[in-house]
Design a protein around this nucleic acid. Structure first.
Lengths: 212, 212
DNA sequence: TTTGAAATCCCTCTTTCGAGTGAGCCTTGG
DNA sequence: CCAAGGCTCACTCGAAAGAGGGATTTCAAA
């Protein structure tokens, strides 16, 4: 808009090509200035503290330190920080985690790309930017039942293929208790068995595949 | 190199930001010309037939039609086509499928980005471009046992959480046969149960999570 | 031709899962 | 205070799953 108030932007993404693409898109706006880049959540938090950008574009799935954790840290240091998530993933859990951590906007990478600029301008006006597509996923989470912390913990072990007995000893509880939790998880996720529970949990972003 | 022989490039990726990033990177080379873009495998095959680019940059996981299928089609129409895969995923199965389909190079998106240009130049010299990181994954596949077509088919159903009985009726075979296959799958993937088999298969790119 | 791998099927046996039911303890929020 | 939900455990029971044996046919490679 006005060249008197350049908008400073910090880009966070572990993919070089994506960072480059964002620079290219943002360059088209005369009042946008990319003041820094980070390739993981840890770097992002440090860079934000130093640069205090008007807007931070944040990927979610990054090595070392994920985007959600970075959002938490940044908002803890600066509650007014404006953070725009740009993620591949549309799991309702990812979306919810990012927004409750303090993100003000959420874009999907496969969206047409002409949304980046208006999203940033929206955040600068103090308004959120949540596309309907994203909001729908969030709504589906509210409708469906939410796993408790303990249940989430169990799902993580289910993903590793652990048997109930092993989960029990890992968590220091009885196998009966594990079975009880698993039963509740199956009901909440509306699946028939633990294997389906794993794929649904992965799709919804409740847990992620272990790296390598 | 020489401005007399501009190298024409087709970009295929479903993410706008990535396409933009590639354009930005390729623009720096005076003899590179991006002649077209495609956002899925189907478009890529059509665009390639029309444009006959010197090099095609290809993502693997795309909606409608995946990259591997696109590579097959393009190479069927033009066996000399030079295709450079640029993928997030490092599952040994993805890598193997792309290379046997006819890809001449394989880059990972999280690589530093300064590899794109040399990779293209390498392909133009008729040489492959397989980073050690990628080659290692490929080697790990060769070491480990490879699933047969039938076993792969069964794994797809395992991912959906189907019970042996349901898999049996879906494939028109006996439950005993399914159990036999599952047993072999567990042995080949070196896992304890079907749930772990699912996560390992997903990590290795043997199967993918169903969309939505 | 022999060898081997893949796919099919069968049988036994043990372990694990998951449904069903119930119950005690603790914390949090009306 | 009390209800609600989360976490814990117990017991039964039928249904799967998986280990461990074989066995057959087919088909392609050595």
């Amino acid at each position: 808009m006005s060249s008197e108030n350049p908008i400073s932007i910090l880009i966070t993404d572990d993919h070089f090509v994506v960072r480059e693409g964002l620079r290219s898109i943002l360059r088209r706006e005369a009042d946008f200035t990319v003041v820094g880049e980070a390739s993981n959540g840890h770097e992002a938090a440090i860079a934000h503290a130093r640069l205090r950008p008007d807007v931070t574009i944040m990927d979610l799935r990054m090595p070392v330190c994920g985007g959600v954790e970075a959002i938490r840290r940044i908002r803890a240091a600066d509650p007014a920080a404006r953070i725009l998530v740009l993620s591949n993933f549309e799991g309702d859990e990812d979306i919810h985690a990012a927004l409750t951590a303090g993100a003000m906007g959420y874009l999907l990478k496969h969206s047409s790309g002409d949304q980046v600029t208006p999203a940033i301008r929206s955040l600068m006006l103090g308004k959120r930017w949540i596309p309907r597509e994203v909001a729908d996923h969030l709504a589906s989470r509210e409708r469906g039942e939410v796993l408790s912390d303990r249940e989430r913990e169990i799902v993580k072990l289910l993903v590793l293929g652990e048997a109930n007995k092993q989960i029990a000893s890992a968590l220091g509880i009885t196998e009966e208790t594990v079975k009880s939790h698993v039963k509740n998880i199956l009901a909440k996720l509306q699946v028939r068995d633990r294997t389906e529970a794993v794929t649904v949990a992965l799709r919804r972003g409740i847990v992620h595949l272990p790296e390598v």
